[in-house]
């Protein structure tokens, strides 16, 4: 269902008019519709090469062997033939790769879902609703981001031990269920992207607050929410220190498991980077699928779905 239709259905004509107005102002490119010249493509191409190279470098090393890596500071641009061999070594080692993979999927998915819902809810409240202490509370939320996390590990671990959560995935999921960053991000986004007319219209039509949120704020927040979900997913996927401390190697997430590849006689870069590449591939897949939606969400503007 297109969200404009949905808004008309649930929040009335006023909201739909506002939505349509918004759609109009998003039609067309920045300033002009003509295609940009080769300079733009060249700059972007160079940027893309630079940003892809380190990842490719990691893959190249993962297809190589330790000896070749040490002898050649600049790896050949063509992958060597050892990737499947290295991959097999990673999967056959005792790092529990598959369990770690499923743990990571569970943790990252649940965390993203929960962060998006709670942050959007709070962001809607902070950006569009009136209540006493709003500004002070928002400042407080932002200030909480400034607390250095390293020290919090000990008291947080005490909390988890009290709850008897150590070693369990819930100990990684719950502390990350809503973040100050998410709240701040959704607040800033909804500030711009959600016109008051829409809320007004919904309210006039007698929608309760939660229905207003569900039918007006949530659709308007979609592009930012997609982005937040992706960022949260990636952040959760790549997080190392806290999962390492609270879960340990017996119930690991991927980074905790992949890190164990270093526990051998010497630093075998081909093995480590093959593991790194393997653990990054799922993320690239998610990115390839979700990234497209994310980008199209941004492109089509806030309301039109």
């Amino acid at each position: 269902m297109s969200s404009v239709a949905m808004i008309e259905q649930t929040a009335g004509k006023g909201a739909a008019r506002a939505a349509a107005r918004k759609r109009k102002r998003n039609a067309g490119g920045a300033g002009a519709n003509h295609r940009p010249g080769w300079v733009t493509y060249t700059i972007l191409g160079v940027v893309l090469l630079i940003s892809a190279y380190p990842l490719y470098y990691s893959f190249l090393l993962g297809t190589s062997d330790a000896q070749t890596i040490a002898q050649n500071p600049v790896p050949s641009l063509v992958p060597a033939g050892h990737f499947f061999d290295n991959m097999r070594r990673v999967l056959e080692s005792d790092i529990q790769f598959w369990k770690a993979l499923s743990n990571s999927v569970i943790v990252a998915s649940l965390t993203s879902l929960s962060v998006v819902i709670f942050s959007t809810l709070a962001g809607f409240s902070f950006s569009k609703l009136r209540f006493k202490g709003r500004n002070a509370l928002l400042v407080f939320v932002i200030a909480t981001m400034a607390v250095p996390t390293q020290l919090g590990i000990v008291p947080l671990f005490i909390v988890m031990a009290e709850l008897n959560w150590t070693g369990k995935l819930v100990a990684v999921i719950v502390p990350a269920m809503v973040t100050a960053f998410g709240v701040f991000w959704m607040t800033q986004y909804l500030e711009e992207a959600l016109p008051y007319e829409l809320i007004e219209a919904a309210r006039i039509d007698g929608c309760s607050m939660i229905r207003t949120f569900w039918h007006v704020a949530l659709p308007a927040a979609r592009p930012a929410a997609a982005m937040l979900a992706l960022f949260t997913f990636v952040g959760s996927w790549t997080n190392f220190f806290w999962p390492f401390i609270v879960l340990g190697s017996s119930n690991p997430t991927l980074p905790v498991a992949v890190q164990l590849l270093q526990a051998s006689y010497f630093k075998d870069y081909s093995l480590i980077l093959a593991g790194v590449t393997l653990s990054t591939i799922p993320l690239i897949l998610v990115f390839a699928v979700a990234g497209k939606h994310l980008v199209s969400g941004i492109m089509q503007g806030a309301v039109k779905g």
Binding site: P54, L55, V234, F240, P255, Q259
Partner: peptide, 29 residues
Amino acid sequence: LLDANLRAKTFWRMGVLLPYVVAPVAVGL
């Protein structure tokens, strides 16, 4: 640059975000 009317917009937009999926540990290594 990305806000311009590019061909293959999605490709370029996703391309710039690619490094973000690399874990900090891997970036460090």
